[in-house]
Amino acid sequence: MFDTETEGARIELRALTKHYPGQPAPAVDNVDLDIPAGELVVFVGPSGCGKTTTMKMINRLVEPTSGEIRIGGKDVLSLQPDELRRHIGYAIQQVGLFPHLTIGQNIGLVPKLLGWPAARIAARVEELLSLVNLEPSLFHDRYPRQLSGGQQQRVGVARALAADPPVMLMDEPFGATDPITREHLQKEFVRLQKRLRKTIIFVTHDFEEAIKLGDRIVVLRERSHIAQYDTPAEILARPADDYVAGFVGQDATLKRLALLRVEDVAPAGPPQQAGLPQVAAGTSLREALDVMIAHGSDRCSSPSGVLTYTALCGAVGTGRPSSPGREPEAVPSLPAPEKVVAGGR
């Protein structure tokens, strides 16, 4: 259907508007947005800001009043909606697994709608179950109610991936799980997306989740107006206005530290110094700072060298430790946003 099957496709929204009849103002007002192929873009905003409506217009569960949507250069509004949806992965918060079908049947549904031969569907289902870390022999013939919430969410993601769509839409897919399961699912999902490089639109109202998952974040305000569209590091470092700053919260610097890992800072000195608190190379700077505070030390040791408090401040561009406070432009050692994003994983 789209020119680039399986690998992500570019999504373009042009003057996209949804005006429900009888409403004084449009729910989604004149949205222009480019989503690069293979990126995970998070729509974040308060409830009722139109983020879900915007997303649902892309697979036409909601028909736009006006505007244009292109996926991989193709005009979505000229396609047959049901056929279009079979080529766009879709996962929702309530998961929506069909209780009367087995896990295998649930995952194989879209391939079946697309008319794949049975053998190919069976192979694909096995592959997907393994991909989301569910043992195929154990789960294939179970029914959804026999699974825990987290397991159901994984099946939901597997089902959305079933036909290997270039584009996936996800509406708070981890919203209904407990914090521990959620964290786990998010980590797995980030790993998965690194491999698959789909174009994903991910809707959430949780800014923390947006930072963890997004290659880019779209902060939306009322009527789906875009307040800021940028990488997580950039939004944390330079929120466009008070509205975005409110979303970021008071601990923006700490959040930025969480995006960086110890090995990205290239600390000086010999590795693994005895007598200093030890951290692993993959630890985030935020966790490293936590270790330092816990030990009352201004440095800690990692396999790649000694990390000092000064280096830590330098990494987020906040100057010397003797003069705390935010001077984002003062220190030029701020890593390029793209690199920060890559390092954040």
């Binding site: 049901d82 879709y90 929702i92 998961v95 709608l113 089902r159």
Partner: peptide, 18 residues
């Protein structure tokens, strides 16, 4: 029938009849 199931089904590309 849970509306979420119908939404999931529509979102997967089932026709209304399906």
């Amino acid at each position: 029938v849970d509306p979420a199931l119908v939404e999931a089904a529509r979102g997967m590309g089932m026709t209304r009849g399906q």
